[in-house]
Computed example of a mutant assay.
Amino acid sequence: MAEPFELAVVTGGAGFVGAHLCSALLAAGTEVVAVDNLVTSATGALDSVRDHPRFRFVEHDVTTPFSLPTMADVVFHLASAASPRDYLALPIETLRAGSLGTEHALDFARAAGARFVLASTSEVYGDPAEHPQTESYWGNVNPVGPRSVYDEAKRYAEAITVAYRGKHGLNTGIARIFNTYGPGMRPDDGRMIPTFLRQASVGEPLTVTGSGEQTRSICYVTDTVRGLVALAHSDHPGPVNIGNPHELRVRDLADLIRTITGSSSTIEYVDAAEDDPQRRCPDISLAREALGWRPRVAPDEGIRLTAKWFSRAE
């Protein structure tokens, strides 16, 4: 097992994945500085670590330059609106987080002598014509569609990360994250799993967009975090897919949630979202070979853990 980092900076550290990453790093013995402007964070996301002696929180919008009075071993750049509801409400802010925010985080990593890990997304593949998606696939993205503010922000973030590596010799790695879920998600964030769980808990119909035949590959948050940390401990530049290759139809996922929660909710089919990917599944061969990483939590187990947390949080 790799030695823990002495100090890590996590932008977007109060977000869903960011908060789990901060907790995991602290548990491993790392000092952590979380940077976040709290615009899309869940209330109390960092309550469990806020008083930890090795944790500091800095409220800051990374679209303006920042500096910290410290060196760092690694910078994890997660700052961005991540759910469709958020990035559609904050289109300019999302684009700025991916462009200016990434540049400022890269500048800080360069000044601090840190490895830089970009949390990119499977959305860079768009509605893929290749299945499963490998890192060599260039994607099928609509640059002027409603999802473009997020998709193109992340594609630009990857491009500038690669440019800093080439121009400045910065030690960088890019992770492409696939549909992460788990405890700590906001029930109202608009993503599929928290929406289904919220609807199931009150007996509302589970709203499935389109035919429900479209597929997703869902990755439990602890697995995603392990992948990010494994990439940080490596010297691999990426991009590397971090996701669970177990592919599920959306309507089957809705049925699984009804079964696990014991809900009497029906399934209601609504209009498909524009540019909604029809198939989404990662090829994780590179992650297995380069990082020794694979997901450990099966979808049914992860959904049970998430549903249990949601029932306590209500």
Score class of each variant (00 low, 15 high):
residue 129 A to D: 10
residue 2 A to N: 07
residue 160 I to Q: 06
residue 237 P to K: 04
residue 27 A to G: 09
residue 271 D to M: 04
residue 55 F to C: 01
residue 286 L to R: 10
residue 105 A to N: 07
residue 159 A to Y: 10
residue 86 D to K: 05
residue 20 H to V: 06
residue 148 S to N: 05
residue 299 P to N: 06
residue 287 A to R: 08
residue 40 T to H: 12
residue 255 D to M: 05
residue 313 A to N: 00
residue 276 D to W: 10
residue 94 T to I: 13
residue 277 P to T: 09
residue 116 F to G: 08
residue 277 P to F: 11
residue 88 L to H: 15
residue 56 R to M: 00
residue 111 A to I: 06
residue 111 A to P: 02
residue 51 D to K: 07
residue 202 V to A: 01
residue 22 C to S: 12
residue 46 L to G: 08
residue 299 P to H: 06
residue 206 L to C: 12
residue 82 A to N: 15
residue 95 L to S: 14
residue 266 T to E: 14
residue 93 E to S: 15
residue 15 G to D: 02
residue 127 D to C: 01
residue 208 V to N: 14
residue 252 D to H: 09
residue 287 A to M: 08
residue 129 A to S: 09
residue 218 I to M: 14
residue 167 K to N: 05
residue 141 V to G: 02
residue 191 R to N: 11
residue 43 T to F: 11
residue 234 S to A: 03
residue 149 V to Q: 03
residue 214 Q to E: 14
residue 269 Y to Q: 13
residue 304 R to Y: 02
residue 77 H to W: 14
residue 32 V to Y: 05
residue 56 R to T: 13
residue 114 A to K: 03
residue 118 L to V: 02
residue 137 Y to T: 04
residue 215 T to E: 12
residue 106 L to G: 14
residue 305 L to H: 00
residue 183 P to Q: 09
residue 137 Y to G: 08
residue 239 P to I: 09
residue 291 L to F: 05
residue 223 D to T: 07
residue 10 V to I: 12
residue 298 A to R: 07
residue 281 C to P: 01
residue 120 S to Q: 08
residue 218 I to P: 10
residue 204 E to W: 13
residue 274 E to G: 00
residue 42 A to G: 11
residue 25 L to M: 02
residue 239 P to V: 12
residue 104 H to N: 15
residue 90 L to P: 05
residue 299 P to K: 01
residue 26 L to Q: 10
residue 4 P to S: 07
residue 100 L to A: 15
residue 275 D to I: 13
residue 215 T to R: 11
residue 284 I to W: 05
residue 11 T to P: 01
residue 166 G to K: 07
residue 112 A to R: 09
residue 175 A to S: 06
residue 64 T to G: 06
residue 56 R to V: 06
residue 128 P to V: 01
residue 230 A to N: 07
residue 148 S to M: 08
residue 211 S to C: 06
residue 142 N to W: 02
residue 217 S to W: 08
residue 78 L to P: 01
residue 306 T to N: 00
residue 163 A to L: 11
residue 219 C to M: 14
residue 188 D to N: 12
residue 269 Y to M: 12
residue 76 F to H: 08
residue 36 D to L: 09
residue 73 D to L: 13
residue 296 R to L: 11
residue 218 I to L: 15
residue 307 A to R: 04
residue 217 S to L: 02
residue 7 L to K: 10
residue 159 A to D: 13
residue 38 L to C: 04
residue 152 E to L: 11
residue 119 A to K: 07
residue 75 V to C: 15
residue 5 F to E: 03
residue 44 G to I: 07
residue 290 A to T: 03
residue 40 T to E: 12
residue 109 A to P: 06
residue 45 A to V: 07
residue 100 L to M: 09
residue 262 G to H: 08
residue 217 S to P: 06
residue 81 A to G: 13
